[in-house]
Design a protein around this nucleic acid. Structure first.
Lengths: 182, 182
DNA sequence: CAGTGGATAGAACGGTCGATCTACTCATTA
DNA sequence: TAATGAGTAGATCGACCGTTCTATCCACTG
């Protein structure tokens, strides 16, 4: 029950601070929150860019696992599995403290060639692939397009949850999901 | 045919630079691009925050006018008017140089209490209201919900256009728009 | 012509940025 | 026991941040 090493503490703190304050947070704030020496950051990650890149990757793996878990909670029916995932999403954005999708925010604010942007796009494509597995399993006539549309709806929920918190996104998105599922 | 004054030059330059580089651009870059004295910025806008706020407002008015024009190009049929607006949107995100929705990017990266965030939300709500006028005109059974859904789809196009430029958003969004219109 | 006010140019402010550096502690281990 | 290496603490670097300042120019107006 010893506390994790500097590398993991940095990742955990950066994961939290970049979410609440964006990728523009200063390294000083991350170092202080992680209670880690300045030097450790540069030894483990080579710099702020490296840390951000690994934070994105770590967060993506975590979120994808959460999505996979939600799918499995939906049982064996692919349609029900997708519905359950959207229930998770609408719940996430309605929860207090939600400030927007970490990956969309990072992608929109990082310079175009930043090493983390590739990881962001890869994450979104893996989520699309998760949807594609379900649309294939349900025998959808156009499973790939349907998966891309479900990703669009998922991102719409994440964005709209930040921009228009007064909207009831569960009610709004549900019939659109059904329309895509066919 | 004289060149516009410092205030308008600042707005124009800030509009361009905050789009290509985000709201995090330095005032030095804006001043240099606008060829304006440092002091003029603080006389006209009180500071960077004031400039950003007015830039958001000016850009919003401009974009809303463009949307209104697209609607009118669709003729008198509300459904066709909405389709025409989505054609504009999918064209915008497919055009070279598109980097994402200025307002979503700004909202996700400005601190929560920034004076510009209210203008951003107001802009999105005015776009929703534009959709609502159409859904009411077409006699939609649930016009307000439909308008909120159309805004979600519009934002989805803007976000996905930045994150997954390889996707054919016109093809993807079209049937979803039709499903919402009923 | 004198005066007024907007615009300009640019120095300078304190603060923060990311990054590098030295120096010290401490556990492991050869 | 001596050495190694990771971690810590903190000074320091140059660059940039937004902001304020003085000083000058210039068109307009009295």
């Amino acid at each position: 029950m010893t506390r994790p090493g500097p590398r993991e503490r940095l990742l955990t703190s950066a994961l939290e601070l970049t979410y609440t304050q964006g990728v523009g947070v200063g390294v000083d704030a991350i170092l202080k929150h992680a209670d880690v020496a300045r030097r450790s950051l540069y030894q483990h990650f080579g710099g702020k860019d490296g840390l951000i890149t690994e934070v994105i990757a770590a967060g993506a793996a975590e979120d994808e696992a959460r999505y996979a878990h939600a799918l499995d909670q939906g049982g064996n029916d692919p349609r029900e599995r997708v519905r359950t995932l959207f229930t998770l999403l609408t719940g996430l954005v309605a929860a207090p403290g939600f400030t927007g999708c970490r990956y969309i925010a990072a992608h929109l604010n990082l310079p175009p060639g930043h090493p983390a942007t590739a990881g962001i796009r890869a994450h979104k494509d893996r989520v699309r692939a998760m949807f594609a597995r379900e649309t294939h399993a349900m025998g959808h006539p156009a499973p790939e397009d349907a998966a891309a549309r479900l990703l669009m709806l998922a991102d719409a929920v994440l964005v709209e949850g930040a921009l228009r918190p007064e909207a009831d996104l569960a009610v709004l998105v549900e019939p659109m999901v059904e329309a895509v599922l066919g």
